[in-house]
Nucleic acid binder design. Structure first.
Lengths: 261, 261
DNA sequence: TCGAGTTGTGAAAAAGCTGTGAAAGCAGGG
DNA sequence: CCCTGCTTTCACAGCTTTTTCACAACTCGA
């Protein structure tokens, strides 16, 4: 299995130099990073589906402790790393006891911060292999990662592993256009050779299987010269009386979007 | 069940003062600590069922890196904390990348070391109080963990220990597809070597024994390229109903499972 | 409208996976 | 020390999936 799953990181810090450097490096590593100006409600964090959080309590103000405690309590899957200036042993111990995973002292090398974030989310992931994240619903489709399979109603699309991973990746970034290289990198796990058509071929297989079980819906859209975008929409064909099956998509906001404000 | 299960810690260090203080505190905290004079084979570590390891690579000699790598690779569930003297950022990053969970610099306060060890071995509190929930029933099968055995009616399947543990793991996650690596990790206790076929072989043995005492039921399903899924379903002896029509079990919502309660 | 560059398709070749039977290793009990 | 079960390893057959190819169909700018 792909061990290097992409990490979704949020940073709460106002040391712009540090944050910038960090952003550059995490991006190069293929992580998705979002910088926050300050504390945001735990609920929003949940929606962002983060793997890791790097935070300087100095910017949190007075009740940073209770905020951190709330975060750690409500997001047991989130790896939390504190990176701040001078601190006492007692403070660090208190933080770690409270649920924080690592505590780094500034100034620190961005590379080390990244390595520690990586270590922390590695451990978190291992501790809870596949949390009960309900199925991802899109159009008539239900994507269930506990089954490595997608369903229309009760019927399985009968996807192979790669097909499933591709579909999952696309659906995870619903609405976003993904370039072939990026898709290949994330599904296959290594760089795409020039001229490789694998992605196209698998897109076709997916479309075939989707069409067969869920005609009346268009799921995967081609962006010429760019890549593909997943966005379930009822096919506008006037002839289609079919799509009376409730588009459950809206009922289950399963996936928040990191890029969405 | 107690979420704070006692931690089994091993320490590889020769700073007797530090080790002694540490031992005193961990003992007070109810941990089981074992101090080792130097490197021991990863296999022995497996046997010790450790949760955490505190190690000063200085006492490991020259190939401390490869040793640590081996440990981290074979015992992914082990929390590894390095505690040593001066080090460069590059060394720390290398260590963390390699699988180490935390890296502390000496001199360090024992309390902080303990807090970090705790943070590192903190993991899901799985309230799996299999405290006599009675035998787990699936299809014609009754799995009785009190007997380390499965029965069809009164007849024992005559499972060996590994067979039983494998069956129990699968049945515990009924309906879920488990990957080989995950299965191996949880039944054998350490990471699966690439190309190891043990899981497949045991699946075959289970299938044989199940088939013999409970023909007419299919229990273990193969997911090509992924792993196996336990889901008892009556086998349609003659060419019967549609093959792909999902059995009722599949329709159940992903969350709560009434039969488990 | 033309042409270079892209994407969709079908099918064959190559690679990879799983089921199986059997032999080789191992550990505990006579 | 030998026996006896249990576990691991091996080699191979049969299948499934993935990759590769050659072409047709299509898009977009000149």
């Amino acid at each position: 299995m792909n061990s290097q799953q992409t990490i979704r990181l949020a940073v709460i810090d106002n040391d712009s130099g540090f944050v910038t450097v960090l952003a550059k490096r995490t991006e190069a590593a293929g992580w998705q990073q979002r910088t926050l100006g300050g504390a945001i409600p735990p609920e929003e964090m949940v929606a962002m589906k983060l793997n890791a959080l790097l935070v300087d309590p100095a910017v949190l103000g007075d009740d940073s402790w209770s905020y951190l405690e709330r975060i750690c309590g409500m997001l047991p899957d989130l790896g939390v790393v504190v990176c701040t200036g001078r601190s006492t042993v007692a403070q660090r111990v208190r933080g770690l006891r409270l649920g924080i995973d690592d505590w780094i002292t500034k100034p620190c090398h961005p590379e080390e911060a990244i390595a520690r974030l990586e270590a922390v989310s590695r451990r978190r992931r291992r501790a809870r292999p596949q949390a009960e994240t309900g199925p991802l619903v899109a159009g008539e489709l239900a994507i269930r990662s506990d089954r490595f399979q997608a369903f229309v109603g009760e019927v399985s699309l009968d996807l192979t592993r790669r097909e499933f991973e591709l579909l999952q990746l696309l659906a995870d970034s619903k609405g976003q256009v993904l370039e072939r290289e990026a898709i290949y990198q994330r599904v296959w796990g290594y760089a795409m050779a020039h001229g490789d058509r694998s992605v196209d071929v698998f897109i076709r297989k997916l479309r075939q299987k989707l069409e067969k079980l869920s005609p009346g819906w268009g799921y995967i859209h081609t962006h010429f010269g760019v890549g593909y975008r997943f966005d379930p929409e009822p096919v506008d064909g006037a002839a289609q009386a079919a799509p009376e099956a409730a588009p459950a998509a809206d009922l289950a906001p399963v996936h928040g979007d990191l890029t969405a404000a």
